[in-house]
Design a protein around this nucleic acid. Sequence first.
DNA 1: CGGCGGTCCTGTCAGC
DNA 2: TGCTGACAGGACCGCC
Length: 274
Amino acid sequence: MPELPEVETVCRGLSAHITGRTIVRATARRRDLRVPLPHDFERSLADRKITAVTRRAKYILIHLDDGKIFIVHLGMSGSLILHDAPLPNFRKHDHVIIEFSPYKLMVFHDPRRFGLIALAAGKDIEGNKLFVQLGKEPLDPETTAERLYDILQHSRAPVKSVIMDQRKIVGVGNIYACEALFRARIHPARPANKITKKETARLMNGIKTVLEEAIRSGGSTLRDYVRSSGDAGYFQHHFSVYGRAKTPCTLCRTPLSTTRQNGRSTFFCQTCQK
DNA sequence: CGGCGGTCCTGTCAGC
DNA sequence: TGCTGACAGGACCGCC
């Protein structure tokens, strides 16, 4: 699930519930995530107080009172769930467990282990290997259609690949790329440098609005996400094209098309998107 | 350098 | 029912 809106939702939920709490204990049930957990991981977290929870791209940044940052990326299948009471038993793929005082339990669960957990010194976070290459935040007011146009002009790759390229714009994954292109009425395979200024304005607007709406609908189910038991509670956002091959386009009733780009499924309306 | 394809890993679902 | 293959919301690496 986790594209920018999901990560933002998780961050807001975490921020509301763990800011100001102290980590009593960190436990790794397995260390071989995408990047192996550092050997001093548990020790580095113990007794640290959470000062803030923020987001950069699809990374969750849990700020600690010693200036370090506990970084979590959910990959394709990761979740970070809070529980109010101790669990009778952990599930398969519950890899990292954090206990807080006052009591809360935070469980990092990730079947595919494409997720990542790391620790970094806070002051040089932007210089961190994970972050140096990252592009613009799409919801930043400074990320304008003019900036996007400049980005698109410098690439001949399909526009969908470009808006999913985290070095150019962050946070847009496969689902929201499809949705934003539909909103902008742009065919996903168009070479980026052939997109006009006018189309770019629609695309920037499509990206911002679809992300904002998804965050809003995530916010409304925030209580579900932090419920003390149960699964990830990712919200059900309504998609116009993603996963809807062959079903009628909401605008023109043409059956939606699907294709593959860079190994990822793309959904679009061949009538509306040119 | 840019762009594409393969790869990491496990779970789920469709089809036989 | 059981097996097989395709596919899944991400990102890195290496090759042309």
